[in-house]
Amino acid sequence: MPSAPARRPGPRRGRAARPPARGGGPGARGATGPDRRARAHVLGALYAAAAGGLPILADGGYDGAGIGVHTPIKQPAGNQTLSPDSRTYNQLLRSLRCLGERGFALLKGRWRILQHITAGPSTIGDIARAALVLTHFEHNWLPEIR
């Protein structure tokens, strides 16, 4: 008896293909996307840290994020230049941020798990702290305990 012809993979006939849902939930219209939800989550943590007196150094993407979040001052429109005070502020902000960026680059380059992590924020913090301690141990940067 001849076997039935192999069915080709693909959408079933007779049913209209439904476009993929955009945003947060399955088929939810007007829901926030993952980037917006992540930004809201991060800003909540930043505001809590700023309320505790910790200055937050951010890049230009967080311009207008709120009080306590320090972002670079933008170049004025036209042929105007920034004042020397504003240029100095931007240079100091860049020099402080580069230390943190370098530290993150060192950790991400050494520990593969930090390159594409999808865990929750508290779990990421625990993993990053463990990676930092191990990196300090590896480079012999740990202080002596007496």
Rank of each mutant, 00 (worst) to 15 (best):
G61N: 09
G61S: 06
L54H: 13
P84V: 05
P84H: 08
P55M: 00
G78P: 08
L57Q: 06
A65K: 11
A65G: 05
Q91P: 00
T88I: 01
T71E: 11
P72C: 15
A65M: 09
Y89I: 02
L93C: 10
P72G: 03
A77G: 15
Q75F: 01
Y62A: 06
N90W: 02
K74P: 14
Q80A: 08
Q75C: 10
Q75D: 09
T71I: 03
T81P: 00
G66T: 04
D63I: 02
G78T: 02
L57N: 10
P55L: 08
G60W: 00
Q75P: 06
L92K: 11
Q80N: 03
L57Y: 14
D85G: 11
P55Y: 05
G66K: 08
G78L: 09
I56K: 14
N79L: 07
G61Y: 02
G61M: 02
L93Y: 06
G61T: 00
I73K: 14
Y89M: 11
T71M: 12
A58T: 15
P72D: 02
D85A: 05
K74S: 14
D63E: 07
Q80G: 04
Q91D: 02
A58W: 03
Y62N: 13
G68P: 03
A58M: 04
Q75R: 14
L82K: 07
